[in-house]
Nucleic acid binder design. Structure first.
Length: 277
DNA sequence: CAACCGCCCTGGGAGC
DNA sequence: TGCTCCCAGGGCGGTT
């Protein structure tokens, strides 16, 4: 389940194979992802050169230019089970390999997504960030804009739980169920606590822990639970650092109390009943 | 506006 | 062994 660290790991993995390459053809085997893949990309992108591979939140933005230096941007979201990998010519597509971008060195960028919660869309040519999926996104957690003060200000008068608040991409991008639970553990904050009722002091600690956990997970190549593999098909190693996620009834690494699992907004959450309050 | 809920989808695991 | 059921989850879009 790719959250920000897994998407960034993917971006770093594919970027060196893509920049300056020309797209030869695009093969769409299954256009029905979260949204329909626009069919015209199979005719408009061949011949275009890839200029940059960027990330915004959990989205990967692939920008190209044509001979007249007019640019376009493709927007990828990996959903829950998506991956982008570089494969060779002889690497035959399997089930759920929905799209191939064939490159001028005969390698391919392959979009695989069993659950099809991912997406592949096109952005406006000159201002990709004005796309409706990007324009309302909150700050990057590793940016200076994201701070305890920011979280404190944004959460005033909000009644929802702090965990749901953190998982709202309009508040901050990139945090899913895993990293939200882990960051709250490190900050000692109970996931059910009301967002609008947490002090600036505690939000300052929380913002620091979010940055720390995201940064460290990127260094570890992300978390692999079931599906995630990086651009070369290798798993990440951050799952070895998980303190609460998926650890119900196992002892807390700090106090040895059994970790609890509860449903929160139809989603599981894990926490230490002694360390988090 | 905020909060909530349904929905999109498949694979893996548990239970029978 | 094979069936059924449940769960995992991001985030949009509609409703309250």
């Amino acid at each position: 389940m790719p959250e920000l660290p897994e998407v960034e790991t993917t971006r770093r993995g594919i970027e060196p194979h893509l920049v300056a390459r020309v797209i030869t053809s695009i093969i769409i085997r299954q256009p029905k992802l979260r949204w329909l893949i626009p069919e015209h990309i199979t005719s408009t992108y061949p011949g275009q050169q890839i200029v940059t591979v960027n990330r915004r939140g959990k989205y990967i933005l692939l920008t190209t230019k044509n001979h007249q230096a007019i640019s376009s941007t493709l927007l990828f979201h990996l959903g829950m089970s998506g991956s982008l990998r570089i494969v060779g010519q002889s690497d035959l597509p399997g089930r759920h390999d929905h799209v191939d971008f064939v490159l001028d060195n005969n390698k391919r960028l392959r979009f695989h997504d069993p659950r099809r919660f991912g997406s592949l869309l096109e952005c406006p040519a000159h201002q990709p960030h004005s796309h409706h999926l990007l324009s309302q996104l909150g700050p990057e957690p590793l940016s200076d804009e994201f701070s305890g003060e920011y979280l404190y200000d944004r959460s005033r008068n909000r009644k929802l739980s702090v965990k749901n608040f953190l998982m709202d991409s309009h508040v901050v991008v990139g945090l899913g169920n895993i990293y939200a639970a882990e960051a709250l553990f490190h900050a000692g904050i109970h996931p059910f606590r009301e967002a609008g009722n947490i002090s600036l002091k505690r939000y300052t600690i929380l913002a620091q822990q979010i940055k720390k956990v995201i940064d460290y997970a990127i260094q570890q190549g992300g978390t692999t639970l079931r599906d995630f593999v990086n651009a070369t098909g290798k798993p990440g190693y951050f799952q070895q650092q998980l303190n609460v996620y998926g650890r119900e009834n196992q002892p807390c690494v700090q106090c040895h109390a059994p970790i609890r699992k509860l449903k929160q907004s139809q989603r599981s959450t894990w926490y230490c009943p002694r360390c988090q309050h």
